[in-house]
Design a protein around this nucleic acid. Sequence first.
DNA 1: GTTCGAATAT
DNA 2: GATATTCGAA
Length: 553
Amino acid sequence: MVCTADELLGWKDFPKGLKVLLIESDACSAVEMRLKLEEMDYIVSIFCNENEALSAISNKSECFHVAIVEVNTQNSSGIFKFLETANDLPTIMISDNNCISTMMKCIALGAVEFLQKPVSDDKLQNIWQHVVHKAFNAGGKDVSEALKPVKESLISMLQLPFGNAETGKQASVEAEQENNQDLLSGCDKYPAPSTPQLKQGERSLDDGDCQDQANFSMEQDSAEQDGECKSVETTCGNSIFECTALGSPASGEDAVKEEHESTNCCRTEINTTTCYEGKDRPSNKTSNAAGLNRSSAVRNTCGIKASKKRSKVDWTPELHKKFVQAVEQLGIDQAIPSRILELMKVEGLTRHNVASHLQKYRMHRRHILPKENERRWPHPGGSAQRNYYPHKPVMAFPPYHPNHTIPGGQVYPAWIPPGTYTGGIHIWGSPYYPGWQVPNESWYWKPYSMTHADAWGCPVMPQTVGSYPQFAQTAPDFQTTIEMQYTGSTLLNPSDLHAAEEVIDQVVKEAISKPWLPLPLGLKPPSTECVLNELSRQGISKIPPHTKAPNIR
DNA sequence: GTTCGAATAT
DNA sequence: GATATTCGAA
């Protein structure tokens, strides 16, 4: 009985329960092996010789997924017969001696592997691979042209009837493939697994890559030359420009299209299949949160030059968010490409990429923020009065409460690239209070609850980056009360509250340290009574005459 | 030689 | 319009 691919796919705890036919003439060895296999959750049926086994198979009284057959000088002819008869059963040969001709003949007759006794546990553990291999490679595949000479020489060497050789062609071909990998490029068959790793998938992808690459003329790009983009030239990196197959923007994986120049000079855009390094994928699909992937097609493994045209980085919301967080963490004036890159920790992203994005980021800050500031902080006296507020008051957001309202006024914006959907799904701005935005801007700015402003009047984020509930702005402009609507799915947790308190602390500190500034919105000046009480408590009973607090508010 | 940032190219 | 690349300056 051969497992079909469908069966395997529906086999929940595969390979547990795999039925193993064991032909072993030595009872002790047989029992020993059975115990081992049963420990591995295989179901073992022992047969002393091939006739018993064949009769069990032909009676269909039992079915098996894989056979382990001991071959020795005495029983070899019978075992060859078994191999010919049970040719659809993946059969692993085991033997005390390593007679090369016996090994080759067994393999030629369809045995999937030839193991020396004693068989190691890991080899036994992995016998399921042959079942999978058989299941997914069943069906008459012809030997490729490249392998025909090999097969023919084997046929003549082993004096096999052609028909039998055809029956065992797969194993024959596969056995040869393992020793002749170099000869087999382009071969349509895969070697039977002989290691714990299934190589089939790898081969499949590799072949695909080679085929893909054959269609494109590529050169190393300049960034690689300056050593910034090593991951691009390495094999199947989990780096940023890979492709879109498993990634979806919504899940945080970036879709990156890749441009190639084909040999006929036609520029082509293709989406390539993701090829992951085993260490990162598939166990952790979101490990690369920014989700950039660089195409393996840029690899050089097939001797074809990588594309001179650099793959484009898609600055998706997740990636941009990382960028913004890095910039904010550094402070806008300290944010230089190399540091941003360092903080972003996105493999494959280059300093050039970051620099380019930073350029755009700054440009928009410069061009748009002044307009916003003008709109929100009009200076009736003209530009001469612009320095009246060296530090603009900041919005102190209180801890969240569902019915909380915040008076309209200054809120610091965050940069949101155009085209970003801000309806609660793609929130790119402040992780503190995302979802706020200024209407009618092609580049949205979202408010910050921060205490400093950079050269363009934007806030600098503290290092703490927490998870905050999302609020939606429903007020039409900042002069009206803004209802903060809780749109998240969970209530504010202690860390949120803590971070919010920190924000308030910062605001209060700044207000205290710079009394000449207007009070941040959300903070009330102390009442005269409180001030007098405090002064009195400190032993100051008299208030100097003609002292008047600046009437800023 | 490296990095930055602005200008320019794609 | 977005991003990559180039180039002069630090």
